[in-house]
Design a protein around this nucleic acid. Structure first.
Lengths: 135, 135
DNA sequence: TTCCTAGTTTATAATAATTCTAAAGTGAAA
DNA sequence: TTTCACTTTAGAATTATTATAAACTAGGAA
């Protein structure tokens, strides 16, 4: 992914391209595969990869702006921390409780044949399939 | 549900039938329909229903023991609080983000036609279908 | 280029859910 | 009844996240 595309991620999220934000955006979006992360894990990874320092609040703010702009998804995981996913396409997840690891499932690998009707006055926004794993 | 069944819920959870625990168990299990609750909401409801007082820690301990014994399910909901469900049968949920309300979906109302294989060495423990609602 | 200002970063405080702790209370076996 | 392991309780500790306020900076205007 080119730098200009990185800058577009920032611009479309309403964020000025500051040093910290560019580093975060490069780390998240300039890669082959999508990744899952928490704010804490992202902070640690950024510390290793870059020489820039990041206040946790900066990471929270930036990640939330990306989420609001649709560049990141937030994922439900049992536990305390919030997980994010750079894969924003429609897809599902395996969750390995032993390793606290999330694994993507391609949307086309889950086919739902029957669904209930939404309650009165409501519509279905989206469907999340979450498959818990065991050994 | 008879008192003896309530006491069985406690015994099978490894809990002595103390005043507080019997009140909690009666409140949760002596009813027609199953309910969803958080520790906070349960505390408020108990305050209204009974003249007993409950330390939050007591409610946490008791609820977690019921969960460990399989008498309660913990449910994924985006947000900070942990939701529990007295419906421990295999089923799914609607979630109304506007009202923070969970609605049960009978397992037979969701039919999944195709599923991915579990990663190597892992097996599928259970599948949770979570349907987000909008207006 | 220099100034100016709105937007940013940062360290730290505040908040909120949950868990821990240690002291006082209690059930039930002997 | 006495005893003791198990409970309850209030409050402290912990943890993730959000708020705050002061110092900093990007980038347009002069």
């Amino acid at each position: 992914m080119k730098l200009i595309e990185i800058l577009n991620k920032l611009r479309s999220s309403g964020l000025r391209p500051t040093k910290q934000r560019v580093e975060i955006a490069k780390f998240l979006f300039d890669r082959e595969k999508t990744i899952h992360f928490t704010v804490e894990s992202l902070n640690k990874l950024l510390l290793k990869k870059t020489s820039t320092k990041f206040a946790l609040a900066t990471i929270y703010n930036t990640v939330h702006a990306f989420k609001a702009a649709g560049h990141l998804n937030e994922i439900e995981v049992r536990g305390k921390k919030t997980y994010f996913d750079t894969n924003v396409s429609n897809h599902h997840h395996f969750y390995d409780n032993d390793t606290s690891e999330l694994i993507d499932i391609n949307a086309k690998d889950v086919v739902i044949q029957k669904l209930p009707k939404a309650p009165n006055g409501k519509k279905i926004k989206n469907i999340e399939v979450f498959i818990n794993l065991k050994n």
